[in-house]
Measured scan of single mutants.
Amino acid sequence: EFTQISGYVNAFGSQRGSVLTVKVENDEGWTLVEEDFDRADYGSDPEFVAEVSSYLKRNGGIKDLTKVL
């Protein structure tokens, strides 16, 4: 089950073990991109978060400006 990723309007994530599946949706709710990120592939949590965040930004993730990150 996908849940909204904090700080984004149209990005959602689903966690299974160490694998986080993220997706970005358009205004109609269609999935634009979907990608798996395995936490085990990264040396640290900040590196993992930075990679996921960068992916979302590159692929149309819209920041939720009503929330302070």
Results as ranks from 00 to 15, higher is better:
D45R: 06
V24I: 14
K23Q: 04
E1M: 12
N59M: 10
E1T: 12
N10K: 05
A40E: 09
G17K: 03
F48V: 01
V68I: 11
Y42A: 01
D36K: 14
V49W: 15
D64F: 09
V52T: 00
D45H: 08
V9E: 04
I62G: 02
E34Y: 10
Q15G: 05
G29I: 02
G60V: 01
D64N: 08
L65Q: 09
S44F: 02
N26S: 10
L20S: 00
R16A: 06
T66Q: 10
L69G: 13
E28D: 11
A40D: 09
D64A: 10
G60L: 04
D36C: 13
N10C: 14
I5F: 07
D38I: 02
A50E: 09
D38G: 02
E1C: 15
W30T: 13
A40P: 00
R16C: 12
F2C: 09
K23V: 08
L32Y: 07
P46D: 15
Y42G: 01
Y55Q: 02
V49Q: 12
G43D: 11
E35H: 14
E1Q: 12
R39C: 07
K67A: 12
G60C: 08
Y42P: 01
T3M: 10
T66D: 13
G7D: 04
R58V: 07
L56I: 13
S14P: 01
T3E: 08
Y8F: 10
T66F: 10
T66L: 12
G29K: 04
K67Q: 14
K67L: 14
L65C: 15
V49Y: 15
V52I: 13
D41T: 08
D36T: 14
L69Q: 13
T3Q: 09
F2W: 15
N59A: 07
E34L: 11
E1P: 10
G7L: 07
V24W: 03
G61V: 13
A11L: 02
Y8S: 05
G13P: 00
D64Q: 08
A40N: 12
G61L: 09
Q4N: 08
V19F: 02
W30G: 11
D64P: 05
N59L: 08
Q15K: 11
F48G: 00
G7A: 04
V19C: 07
E35I: 12
N59R: 04
W30C: 15
V52G: 01
E28R: 10
N10W: 05
Y8H: 06
S44Q: 01
V22N: 01
G7M: 06
Y42Q: 00
F12S: 04
G17L: 04
Y8N: 06
K57N: 14
K67S: 12
P46F: 15
T21V: 08
A50L: 09
N10V: 05
V22T: 00
T3V: 12
T31H: 04
Q15S: 08
D41Q: 09
V22P: 00
Y8E: 03
V52S: 00
I5K: 05
L65V: 11
Y42M: 01
R39S: 02
V19I: 12
E47G: 02
T21I: 07
V49L: 14
E28Y: 12
E47N: 03
R39T: 03
S6G: 08
I5G: 03
K67V: 13
V33S: 12
A50Q: 09
R16L: 06
G43Y: 08
S14H: 09
V52E: 02
N26C: 09
L56E: 01
Y8P: 04
W30Y: 14
V49T: 09
E1D: 10
G13M: 15
E47A: 08
D38S: 03
G60N: 04
G43M: 11
V19L: 05
S6P: 14
F48R: 00
S14C: 15
V19A: 01
Y55W: 15
Q15P: 04
S44D: 06
D38R: 03
V24N: 01
R58S: 08
A40F: 07
P46G: 14
R39D: 02
T21P: 01
T3S: 10
S44K: 01
F2D: 04
N10S: 03
L32E: 05
L69R: 09
V68M: 11
Y42D: 00
Y42L: 01
L56P: 03
V22M: 00
R58Q: 08
